[in-house]
Structures are given as structure tokens and as C-alpha cells.
């Protein structure tokens, strides 16, 4: 039986992890490569790096971080942030990433999804969707949640599937950072609308929230940051909690 995946996410700027991290036993808690390996040891099924740097120089640093991490990691590594074209994606994959996620650039040029899928296979193309409630539906936002697009999030999810996305990373802007749980209605709506794996993101503040999103929606994976970074619980503790509730995990 396919296990539900738990994915710690590391936000990075200039090759350093920027969200506060509180880990004992690590030489350098800001070093993404060391943190990724620690999360693998705890039982993480996959690691996501999200690069929030803007400058080109910082992006080159990011590629070095990816290759440094890939040397020591033996679970899949996904990298997102600032991917603008096929060449950007190639650079990140060549550095050692297994999957690449794109967001604003996919909205600006949806054909890029198809081009990337044709070049590298759809299994490594993740389209990240940031959705925010607007009346009776959810609207897609881009550029780190600053620009409304007028696009319906559920329709956009179906469209990116048709265009060649292999997976959707769905973040609820309403839930993100609030730590009151994943956005169940949005997550369920998107997971029901597509036949590719969906990763839930935004709002996770406890292991109960992770159980809720698996029990109440059809998502394949849950992404979380702060509960792991602040040592609130380990990946292993989350998995034991899920196992006790009959959810299949590794």
C-alpha cells in the first residue's frame, strides 16, 4: 500500500535556511545540507527546498547547496523558487534535484509546464499553486502571494495536470503561517479534481493537523516546516501518531 508522505520544507535565502531552526546536535542549524540529512534520519520521505532569494548570485549559491545536499541525501529532493524557464529547471536537475517546482512562471507561461515535462518527464515537474479564498471559490496568487491572477485554483489545478504537471504543491494562503491546520475545503477540492498526486501545504501546527488532512482529503503528501524546525515533534513522532490512527506511512 502506498504510504502517505511527510515532507519537511526548508525556506532558503542565499543558500542559508532562513526560518528559525532549533536543533540540537547539529554544528550549524542554518546549513540546509545538514538539516536535510537530519530529516532523512528522522524518517522524512522527501525534502523540499524553497529558494526565496531574488538575486542571480544567490541563485548560483542555491545550485551549490543543491549539489552539496544531493551528495549525502538518499531520499528525493525537490527544489522550487525562481524557476523561470526550461534552462533553469535543467540547471537545478543537473545540480542533483529530483523534482523542480514552478509557480509564477507557470501562470505567466503555461506552455512552460509542457516544455519541462517533455524535456525531463512529468514525474519531476511540480506545479506549486498558492490559493486564497474569494467568496465561494479560491483564487490563484503569484509572486509569493502578492499578485492576484483572477484564476480559479481548482480549474488551474486541472489545467496544469492536462499541460503535463506530475504533481501539485498546494498552499493555502489563508492557512499559511497561522498554524491552525491545513485548509481542508481547498485541499479536498483540488485533490478531488485531479488524478495526479497533491501535496498539502500551509497551516500545519501539530501532528493532529497532518492526520486531519490525510483523513479528510485525498492528498498524497503533507508538507510542513515550523513543527519540525522548532523541534515541536520529529518526523518519526508524526509518523507514529499517523500509524496509530490507521494511516499508512513508511
Amino acid at each position: 500500500m502506498l504510504a502517505k508522505r511527510i515532507i519537511p520544507c526548508l525556506d532558503m535565502k542565499g543558500g542559508r535556511v532562513v526560518k528559525g531552526i532549533n536543533f540540537k546536535g547539529l554544528r550549524d542549524v542554518g546549513d540546509p545540507s545538514e538539516l536535510a540529512v537530519e530529516y532523512e534520519r528522522q524518517g522524512a520521505d522527501e525534502i523540499t527546498f524553497l529558494d526565496i532569494s531574488a538575486s542571480l548570485e544567490a541563485r548560483r549559491t542555491m545550485l551549490n547547496v543543491v549539489s552539496e545536499t544531493a551528495k549525502n541525501l538518499t531520499v528525493p529532493l525537490a527544489v522550487g523558487g525562481g524557476i523561470k524557464n526550461v534552462q533553469d529547471m535543467r540547471d537545478v536537475l543537473n545540480a542533483g534535484a529530483d523534482k523542480v517546482s514552478m509557480n509564477s512562471s507557470a501562470v505567466a507561461d503555461p506552455n512552460m509546464i509542457t516544455a519541462c515535462a517533455e524535456n525531463f518527464g512529468r514525474q519531476c515537474v511540480i506545479v506549486a499553486i498558492d490559493g486564497k479564498r474569494s467568496g465561494d471559490h479560491w483564487e490563484v496568487f503569484t509572486h509569493g502571494g502578492t499578485r492576484p491572477t483572477g484564476i480559479d485554483a481548482v480549474e488551474w489545478a486541472q489545467r496544469v495536470e492536462d499541460l503535463g504537471a506530475g504533481e501539485i504543491l498546494l498552499t493555502s494562503m489563508d492557512a499559511d503561517g497561522v498554524k491552525t491546520g491545513y485548509d481542508i475545503p481547498l485541499t479536498a477540492a483540488v485533490a478531488d479534481a485531479v488524478d495526479i498526486p497533491v501535496i498539502a501545504s500551509g497551516g500545519c501546527g501539530s501532528k493532529e493537523h497532518i492526520a486531519d488532512v490525510f483523513l479528510q482529503t485525498g492528498v498524497s503528501a503533507a508538507l510542513a516546516a515550523s513543527i519540525f524546525h522548532y523541534n515541536e515533534c520529529t518526523v518519526g513522532e508524526v509518523k507514529q501518531y499517523l500509524r496509530d490512527r490507521g494511516i499508512a506511512v513508511r
Partner: peptide, 11 residues
């Protein structure tokens, strides 16, 4: 299978 690719950890 409904959801493809088959992606993730399985026994």
C-alpha cells in the same frame, strides 16, 4: 490506478 504517476514509498 486513478492517481498516476504512482509516486512515493510502497512495499
Amino acid at each position: 490506478g486513478k492517481v498516476l504517476p504512482h509516486m512515493g514509498w510502497n512495499s
